[in-house]
Amino acid sequence: MGKPIKIRAKMKGDIAEVKALMPHEMEAGFRRDPATNERVPAHYITDVVAQHNGDVVFTAYWGPAVSKNPFVSFSFLGAAVGDTINVHWRDNKGDSSAIEAVFK
């Protein structure tokens, strides 16, 4: 199980704005461990999915060039204060994490 996602969900007029920060190494797989000189295997989030009222409102596909502890923000229409939004990720090693937040 990956670390918990940090999330902020805010209504700005009609627009539902979601910002998320995901604690994750996002190891690109090019680095060598200075101690062992072994290549550090790639370990990064590959997919992020957000759902509102059962609809998928946003999907992100990532490669290893997304920064460590990834940040993403996206917006959509048709939500209201008090609604919930779910955000999920999974990575190339099969780890995953998911969070739910309420629009303010």
Binding site: K3, K6, R8, L21, P23, K68, N69, F71
Partner: peptide, 11 residues
């Protein structure tokens, strides 16, 4: 700073 990575460490 809008959503800073150090919030992880704070938590």
């Amino acid at each position: 700073e809008d959503f800073p990575p150090y919030e992880i460490a704070v938590e």
